[in-house]
Simulated assay, not measured.
Amino acid sequence: MATVVPEHGIQSMVSSVRKGPILTIHPESLRCTGYLAFWFMVAVSIAVTKAKVDVDMENTLLVQWFGYNNICVYFDFNPAREVAAMIYPLVEYSLFLYLLASHLHVWSSWSQKLVSTRFLHIDRVLVVIEIILMSWFRMVFVIKAPDDIKGHTYGFLGLQVVLCIVAIKNLVYFHKLHKSPLAVMCERLGFPNLLNEKAQDFVGGTYVFLLVGVTLFKMVFCLTTFAGDPIINSKEPGGRKLAQLADVVWMLLAAVIPFVIAFFQRKHTDTLHIALGFDDSKVLGLVDENAGLLESGGTQQEGGGN
């Protein structure tokens, strides 16, 4: 039996089950870990590429297709690609656990009537989609860019979708709880009354709008480039600078700001306690059922023997 409860209900819950371990989880701490692992993976990949890879960076596949290199170029060449693939599970598992813990947090809030049943069901569907798309990101290490640049890239596009979904969900969820990450940041920095709730919602909504907008631009640019009719000509200086700017802005919105939010939010989000144990009444019920089956089996054997 595994039961998830908010921090304030842990004692009453534990008393109803046979003694077992209690797992304490901070969802936002898991997100911090995932982002730190990601940047560690990037740093190691850059170092290995510069030290061990002999390639003309002015004529990579990314340059040939998109007109410039971005951070992904450091995952394209062995041994950097192999090293990154070994580090990536730290990123993947941390963020998997974050997604699951966040859903359990929503479930706990639903049990306290803080969010609606509809929101719970939507989150339940979205978390499955998020996990599937995030698991496909590993294809950037499985499919080599020179072999199939499109297949190599699609996993990254899926990750972009996941990060947008998470940002939108968190905006709505924390608004419902009246626990805006921006309010938490202002409080931690010593400015608790800097922004009222409407201003916090506006800033949060603007951030999500920018993230989704830049992500859509990047995805459309990528897909139209693969289709042979890019929305901008990144081979020309103006188009290349615009595409590079979009990359930098996206990285800031998707891989830097969320870490900052999670860092400040981690101590202001309720801790989840997962208590593992056995409900004695359930255990007895199983024993009785098994005993009945054994008795029935014995009767059948006796009948067969006669």
Rank of each mutant, 00 (worst) to 15 (best):
I231W: 03
I87L: 15
A254L: 10
A2R: 02
L99V: 15
L163C: 01
L159A: 13
D76L: 02
F259W: 15
I129E: 03
T299Y: 00
A84Y: 14
W107P: 00
D76R: 07
Q11L: 12
L36S: 12
F202M: 06
E295P: 00
K179N: 11
G67F: 07
L100S: 08
G305K: 14
I165L: 14
M57I: 10
Y93A: 11
L182N: 00
G34Q: 05
L284H: 12
D76G: 03
L90A: 13
F40S: 14
T269V: 09
V162L: 03
F141I: 06
L216K: 05
Y68K: 08
L245K: 10
G213F: 00
V53T: 09
D123C: 12
G297K: 09
V53S: 07
F96W: 12
G9V: 02
E197D: 12
F217A: 05
R266S: 01
S15A: 15
R18I: 11
W39G: 09
N233V: 06
L253E: 06
M219P: 00
I122S: 02
H175E: 12
G34V: 11
F191V: 03
V283C: 08
E58H: 13
N59C: 12
E302P: 01
K241W: 13
T60W: 12
L177P: 03
A80H: 01
V53N: 03
Q11Y: 09
G151V: 07
L210R: 02
W65H: 15
G285V: 01
P27W: 06
Q265M: 12
M134D: 03
K218N: 10
I149E: 10
V44C: 13
A291W: 10
P79N: 02
A47L: 15
C164T: 02
Q265L: 10
N69L: 08
F259I: 13
F221M: 05
L177R: 11
N170Q: 14
K282E: 10
T215H: 04
D247Y: 13
I10N: 01
L286D: 11
L242M: 07
V287S: 09
C164P: 02
S15E: 14
K19T: 11
A243V: 04
G292P: 04
R240Q: 15
L23R: 10
G292V: 02
I129C: 13
F202P: 00
I143Y: 14
K19L: 06
V248A: 15
V220F: 05
V140W: 01
L294S: 12
L23V: 14
F221T: 03
H8L: 03
E28R: 03
I87N: 08
V203S: 05
H152V: 07
V214D: 04
V249D: 06
F264W: 09
R18G: 05
A275P: 00
T3C: 02
S234Y: 08
P146C: 10
V208H: 11
Y207G: 07
R240Y: 08
F156S: 09
V4F: 12
D270M: 06
A183E: 05
V172E: 04
G304E: 10
E92R: 04
L30K: 06
V287I: 14
M139Q: 07
K282I: 09
V248W: 15
P230Q: 05
I10G: 01
Q244V: 14
V115K: 05
I122M: 07
Y98A: 03
F156T: 05
S29Q: 09
E92C: 08
R124P: 01
F96G: 04
